[in-house]
Write a protein that binds this DNA or RNA. Structure first.
Lengths: 230, 230
DNA sequence: GTCTATACCAGGATAGAC
DNA sequence: GTCTATCCTGGTATAGAC
């Protein structure tokens, strides 16, 4: 699976994302006409992701946002009922996109080595496309209200558990070495997250998602596979 | 180097830290008497770290802080001149402690393998002791004013460069395999940071800093060393 | 050195015209 | 559906008594 084929399959443009967000939240959004709603949601979310990733959600004022989104304060309140509600909308959309990306990455594959590769690729590739979403989600989790917080933690642990389960499977079938799968899963997650948390660093060094992905796979597989050294 | 010997050597109690912070910032702190100042700084910084790590610096109000620190608003303003100034004080103190810990970790060691081990240990052990400081520093960097931001980024890159330099040294002397040292340094940093960023996760699983450290060292050395498999 | 009281403003939220 | 005008809370910061 290459990055460009993944991107084509997932089709995650802002317009598509906002349309889905609109359809899933018709009750809470006061605007009726789909085209109007989607057009403005694109403006709002683009601006929100930009501001939020610069200074953090708490420091982003709705006045800033209204200026950047080129919509009045009053108009924006037709799309969400409070600032927290905006965060909830974005967070929910992000969670559903991530889950879909990871699941579509591994479905139909049964060999542990292949499943591990595809899961890591799906994670890195989707965080490449949705970087501002992933970043915001990571940085703002702690300020969520209790129920949203739990959902976010659950999602974090789910990814990790999926990684660990694949490793355990591979160990059970004798394909992988009997290393500490729990810890390997944890640090793998950390490496995957670093890709969207330190984007500035990797861009500056001209390291592409493909480079990073190949390296991480090599590093992990060297530790897991029995294959002799080159 | 074990965690407890490191802890003994560094002697990083809140009282010691605040005394140092006071001595380095006498001009900006309006209180004269050292004992009074240190006693109150401990109260302020303990509370600030707690609140800040819960909800983020921007969402921590000085009213909250004054209540938690059990000092009036007016009194607190004798210790810093603005909320941003408080952040600057804490940030500066954190940077100086980290640098000292890392340097004292590797000084006097020349074998690349040993230097790498000691640097990783020093980083993990100090982040174990200073977890709230490290966490705050990581999460708030992006909201710093420009000059403070540059200093923080510089510190991040310095640690990474130290790691990479040791790896390159080891490769040059033929001790380490010729893997991509730049990327290995980057993901190593990510693994080190995960220890203080996801403390809740590791505590819950009863993984100690010693467990984590041993695992990370094994993982990295397996990739770097020529030694045959067990 | 520490407190209380208060100035002042920015931010979230809403009402009601168009 | 969108805008402008406005309300009101709660934030940072300071003044001045003790």
């Amino acid at each position: 699976m290459t990055f460009s084929s993944f991107g084509r399959d997932m089709n995650l443009t802002m317009e598509v994302i906002c349309r889905e967000l609109f359809l899933h939240n018709r009750e809470s959004i006061k605007i009726q006409k789909e085209e109007t709603a989607v057009r403005n949601l694109v403006k709002i979310l683009d601006a929100a992701l930009r501001l939020c990733n610069e200074k953090g959600f708490a420091s982003m004022s709705l006045r800033d946002l209204s200026r950047e989104a080129d919509l009045s304060l009053g108009a924006m309140y037709s799309y969400f009922s409070s600032k927290d509600d905006l965060l909830r909308l974005m967070q929910g959309q992000c969670r559903s996109m991530v889950l879909r990306a990871l699941e579509s990455g591994i479905e139909g594959f049964y060999d542990p080595r292949m499943r591990l590769r595809r899961l890591i690729q799906a994670h890195l590739y989707s965080s490449e496309i949705l970087q501002p979403w992933f970043y915001m989600s990571y940085m703002e989790t702690r300020s969520f209200p209790k129920d949203e917080y739990s959902l976010a933690i659950e999602a974090e642990l789910f990814t990790e558990k999926t990684l660990v389960d694949i490793m355990l499977e591979g160990q059970a079938s004798g394909l992988f070495k009997p290393v500490n799968a729990g810890l390997l899963g944890a640090v793998t997650k950390a490496m995957l997250q670093d890709w969207y948390l330190k984007r500035w660093k990797y861009s500056k060094r001209k390291i592409t998602v493909q480079n990073y992905c190949d390296f991480v796979l090599d590093f992990i597989e060297s530790y897991l596979l029995f294959t002799a050294e080159a």
